[in-house]
Amino acid sequence: MREAMSIWFFAGVLFLIYGVIITAEGFWELAHPPLHPPVLFNLHASLWWGGMMAIAGLVYTIHFWPRVRK
């Protein structure tokens, strides 16, 4: 008998996907800096935010992974 899938599993998968995309974009910005960077560009917020989202998404995905009940 299968347990019902939690909505938090899907939220974790989305967080993981968005985190990976944002982190990749942050690395792209790091390799190709803009001509006129924003004021706080040196903080690299996309790397931090994307990394935190990816870690949170991974934790949620693993924790709420659907299991088969015996």
Rank of each mutant, 00 (worst) to 15 (best):
P37A: 11
F10G: 01
S46N: 07
E29W: 15
F27I: 03
P37F: 11
K70P: 11
L47A: 14
P38A: 14
N42S: 15
F41K: 06
E25F: 08
M1H: 13
R2H: 12
E29H: 15
R69M: 12
E25T: 00
G12S: 07
A56R: 00
K70I: 05
A24V: 11
W8D: 01
I17W: 10
E3Q: 11
L43A: 15
R67E: 03
Y18S: 12
A11L: 09
T61P: 00
R67S: 05
I62M: 09
W49V: 15
I62G: 09
W48H: 14
G51L: 13
T61Y: 01
V59C: 08
I21N: 00
V59Q: 02
W28Q: 12
H32Q: 08
I62W: 04
G50H: 11
H44F: 13
F64P: 05
I55P: 03
A45V: 14
W48P: 11
I62Y: 07
I21L: 05
G50Q: 05
H36D: 10
G26F: 12
F64A: 08
P38C: 08
G12T: 02
P66Y: 08
R67P: 01
L58D: 04
A24I: 05
F41L: 06
R2M: 12
I55F: 13
R2T: 13
A45C: 10
I62D: 01
V68M: 09
G19L: 00
I62L: 11
E25Q: 08
K70W: 08
F10K: 01
V13T: 07
Y60G: 09
A31H: 06
I62S: 10
E29C: 08
V20S: 00
A56Q: 00
P34V: 04
T61N: 03
T61K: 02
Y18R: 02
V20I: 08
A56F: 02
A4C: 02
L14D: 00
F64K: 08
W28R: 15
L16I: 02
V13P: 02
G50Y: 04
A31M: 06
W28G: 10
W49S: 15
E29L: 13
F27K: 02
P34K: 07
W65P: 12
L47E: 11
S6W: 06
P66A: 06
M52W: 11
G51F: 11
L35E: 14
P33G: 08
F9V: 02
K70L: 01
G51S: 15
L47G: 14
W65L: 14
P33Y: 09
F15T: 05
V13E: 05
P33L: 08
R67H: 03
V20D: 01
I62N: 02
M5T: 15
H63A: 08
V39A: 15
R69E: 15
T61L: 04
P66F: 05
L43E: 12
R67Q: 03
L40T: 13
F27W: 10
S46Y: 06
